[in-house]
Design a protein around this nucleic acid. Structure first.
Length: 574
DNA sequence: GCCGTTTTCGGCCCGACTGTTTTCAGTCG
């Protein structure tokens, strides 16, 4: 069988073309390729399927020419156009643009004048003072480039949401204590609850911007000030996090929050919408271009409504069709953070956790939850002290006792059963039958072929005692790629069998991802959210799972955790 | 290269900050 290029591979190719065109100075053509790449990145189906229907040109941002290039890529796995472009510039030229402060113009000068096409060569050239003579390069630029290179080498990894969020909230709290500050809000990707964060964006309103800036750049956590202006400053915290602060007046709070929250693509769409009405949207307000009359700005909702859109929740602002739905007034009512009644995946000291069942239960109760599912590891996961069938029955006894003691709270007895490399489970059916909930997960054999992994999961789904597939793709953000698996096939089987897919809320998992969760829902699969907490203070991770669910357009009825424990028990009976 | 409730041609988001200029280009978000 021929292996066709997948959407992601084609996306990468279009991004490369966009970068190369940018260097060549073809600003708008470059933007066209970038836009097409962004759209393709989030398509729910493969380009191959779309091309078979002859509907490539129906994809937003894909016209006659790009459609032809997709076709060529699908048929030949190559692209003559890219080959020609690559011949004009060495590969390393693009890497120069990875350095903060170097864009297409400077990269091209470096290449044309000094024949520099790698970061290493750039470093040498700067140190030898070879850049100084060129227009636009000076002493400061040299310093900035060296710093940019150091930063690049320290790692370009994005920060996990679960790690960045508490730190961002801390900085926000500090700003609230400044007397010159009126309102504070997180903005940017952290407000959209993206799974990873590039930097922390915070918006403040104040009539005394300079005072706020002085306060901000001298916070104890601040290590280095990168930019300090009247309305905008950038600093690095001692843990290397970059924090951007913007200050505006109260009357611009909504417009600024909207602008500063992004995503960039969402904003561009919004501003184009405004333009069509003869208006202009900026971070200060929405105004009529001719008369200069201000139509909205103080709050976000008024801006969306003025544009005849329903309010779009920050988690949806990724230009994945939310603007169209908002125009049609058909956005889903997203599941809310306070609608979680339970946590459907926690560990205890019985396997590799650090707290007792009671401690986890009390911790969850303090968070306002009504139940938890204790799902410790099973026998063959030796590294995690997996439980045998006998252990599980003993644990069940313990759980029954605890439930008699605790009021207004329920501990569900479950297990995270291991799916072995042949697809069988490592706990007998008759024991699984005793459990309130059975999560089946893959913890080994990540390198198996797509067919093998898919078959393993299908076998598990068809086991009548399995309720949930745990962390269905096995990825670890920044650490491990997901295993190869045919998710559409898995979702179809799960829908048919009444098996749920987990959104594992552990910070470096977030698995399923937002887009996959949306795909699952679209295949009529319900989802469960589990913190996968191994100690009490990890129970709060459940919030990250809700964030994924919201970013995946899930409604309360799509998420099992919104059910009361009685109703949940019913749906867990297959 | 794409796209159309201003347009099939002529636009394509908007503004802040920096560094190198002496009025602005480049970069970033």
């Amino acid at each position: 069988m021929v292996d066709y290029l997948n959407n992601l591979e084609i996306t990468q190719i279009f991004y490369e073309i966009a970068n190369l065109l940018e260097i060549k100075g073809h600003k708008f053509r470059s933007r066209a390729y970038r836009r097409a790449a962004q759209t393709i990145e989030t398509l729910p189906e493969t380009l191959l399927d779309i091309s078979k229907r002859g509907e490539l040109e129906k994809i937003p941002g894909v016209g006659f020419n790009i459609a032809a290039k997709i076709q060529e890529l699908l048929e030949t796995e190559k692209l003559k156009y890219l080959k020609r472009l690559r011949r004009e510039f060495p590969k390393g030229l693009l890497s120069l643009m990875e350095i903060e402060g170097i864009g297409p113009k400077k990269a091209l000068i470096l290449y044309r004048k000094l024949n520099i096409d790698s970061i290493d060569e750039l470093e040498v050239a700067v140190k030898q003072g070879k850049l100084r003579d060129f227009k636009g390069f000076g002493e400061k630029t040299e310093k900035n480039i060296l710093r940019g290179i150091a930063m690049f080498r320290r790692g370009q990894e994005r920060i996990l949401l679960g790690y960045a969020l508490p730190i961002a909230v801390k900085v926000k709290d500090m700003l609230e204590m400044c007397s010159a500050v009126k309102k504070v809000s997180l903005a940017g990707s952290i407000r959209r609850r993206k799974e990873t964060i590039g930097d922390i964006d915070i918006l403040v309103t104040s009539e005394e911007a300079l005072k706020v800036m002085d306060y901000f750049v001298t916070l104890p956590q601040v290590n280095r000030v990168m930019v300090q202006g009247e309305t905008k400053s950038t600093v690095f915290l001692s843990n290397d996090f970059k924090v951007d602060l913007r200050v505006v007046e109260d009357r611009s709070f909504g417009a600024a929050l909207q602008y500063f929250t992004g995503s960039k693509e969402h904003n561009i769409q919004l501003r184009e919408l405004a333009l069509k009405k003869g208006w202009k949207l900026s971070e200060y307000d929405l105004q009529d271009k001719k008369s200069g009359r201000i139509l909205a700005g103080e709050n976000e909702k008024s801006i969306y409504n003025a544009l005849e859109l329903d309010y779009v929740e920050p988690e949806l602002r990724e230009n994945r069709g939310e603007i169209k739905k908002a125009l049609e007034k058909k956005l889903p009512r997203l599941v809310r953070y306070n609608e979680m009644r339970g946590d459907l995946h926690v560990h205890t000291e019985w396997s590799d956790g650090f707290n007792t069942i009671q401690e986890m239960a009390m911790g969850a109760k303090r968070l306002g939850l009504e139940y938890i599912a204790v799902c410790d590891h099973s026998e063959t996961l030796r590294v995690a002290h997996g439980l045998s069938g006998e252990d599980l029955l003993r644990q069940l006894e313990k759980v029954r006792n605890i439930n008699r003691e605790i009021e207004e709270f329920t501990v569900l007895q479950g297990v995270e059963v291991n799916i072995k490399t042949d697809g069988s489970l490592d706990i007998e059916d008759q024991i699984l039958n005793e459990m309130d909930i059975v999560i089946a997960s893959i913890h080994s054999g990540f390198k198996q072929s797509k067919e093998q992994v898919t078959d393993r999961l299908l076998t598990a789904i068809h086991n009548e005692y399995v309720n949930v597939i745990g962390h269905p793709t096995g990825r670890l953000i920044n650490r491990r790629e997901p295993y190869q698996v045919d998710l559409p096939k898995i979702f179809d089987a799960a829908a048919e069998q009444g098996v749920f897919m987990e959104i594992n809320a552990f910070p470096n998992r977030l698995d399923l991802s937002d887009i996959h969760s949306q795909n699952a829902k679209d295949s009529n699969v319900k989802l469960t959210i589990g913190s996968d907490a191994h100690k009490i203070d990890q129970l709060g991770f459940i919030e990250l799972g809700v964030a994924v669910a919201r970013r995946g357009w899930l409604r309360p009825e799509d998420v099992c955790n919104t059910l009361t424990v009685e109703k949940l028990k019913k749906v867990l009976r297959r």
